[in-house]
């Protein structure tokens, strides 16, 4: 049963062809890592899953609903799909706890007590219960990203998108964040799509790895196959460059 399905998806920025004829199926519970050089379209692909980027043609079916269909309530889909951004994007005007509670309150109309209990539990899970009343400007990047993950989980999503979640972090903060992501992806009913440059991490958590370049999917393999013996030449070059560092 597929959670996310791209069928002949095309995306343009003006004249620039950002996604070329994408066909892709991600099953429920799968963890898929998306890699590729910068500008290859991997972030665009991830961001189109919750409609932050609109596609020009093709079908994109998320949890049984076609995103490209005008009748689809995009906000309904977005409550099912959590997203973690490269630059965290914590709401600068709200403290950590409010960052987590606001969307359940105004989108899901969750009961306030339940919301708070839930938010504190999530903060506890990501190891930041003591930061509940700090403002986003008062915590480190690694902590902010963990709050951002908790914020997404508060919506009880069926699927998570991680858009380069560790690219903006200092090296010593990366492990904590990866640890949280690993925990999230390990839950059996959670579907995850992760854009990342952390190859070791990809090897550890991914069921499948997809390599993109120039707006196309060039390789889509089981993780061990991909890292041992990628069939695509460009993927091979990309891997050798990244791993030699």
């Amino acid at each position: 049963m597929s959670m996310i399905e791209f069928r002949k998806v095309q995306k343009y920025y003006g004249k620039f062809h950002a996604l070329k004829d994408i066909d892709l199926e991600i099953d429920k519970g799968e963890t898929v890592v998306l890699i590729g050089p910068s500008g290859s379209g991997k972030s665009t692909l991830a961001r189109s899953v919750n409609g932050l980027e609109t596609i020009q043609s093709g079908q994109l079916i998320v949890n049984g609903r076609d995103i490209a269909d005008k009748k689809t309530d995009i906000n309904r889909i977005r409550t099912d799909v959590g997203m973690v951004f490269q630059h965290f994007n914590l709401y600068a005007n709200k403290d950590v706890l409010e960052n987590i509670m606001i969307a359940p309150r105004i989108v899901l109309k969750m009961n306030e007590d339940e919301n708070k209990k839930n938010a504190m539990a999530l903060l506890d899970q990501v190891g930041l219960a003591d930061k509940a009343h700090n403002m986003p400007s008062q915590i480190s990047g690694g902590q902010a990203q963990r709050v951002a993950i908790a914020r997404s989980l508060a919506m009880k999503p069926r699927c998570m998108l991680f858009d380069e979640p560790t690219s903006a972090l200092d090296p010593e903060m990366i492990d904590d964040v990866l640890g949280v992501i690993k925990y999230v992806t390990s839950q059996s009913d959670m579907t995850s799509l992760i854009v990342t440059h952390e190859m070791g991490f990809a090897q550890e958590v991914a069921n499948r790895v997809i390599f993109m370049d120039d707006g196309q999917i060039l390789e889509d393999d089981k993780t061990d196959v991909f890292f041992k013996n990628p069939s695509n030449e460009r993927a091979r070059q990309f891997l050798s460059k990244i791993i030699s560092h």
Binding site: L52, N75, M83, N89, A92, N93, K94, I106, R151
Partner: peptide, 26 residues
């Protein structure tokens, strides 16, 4: 920052909700 709007929309807030709760106060 544009990311503030995206992060609000990504959790399913409507445009006016994102404006009212997140963008305008800042």
């Amino acid at each position: 920052n544009r990311g503030q709007l995206e992060a609000s929309r990504a959790v399913g807030m409507k445009y006016y909700q994102a404006m009212w709760h997140v963008i305008l106060p800042q």
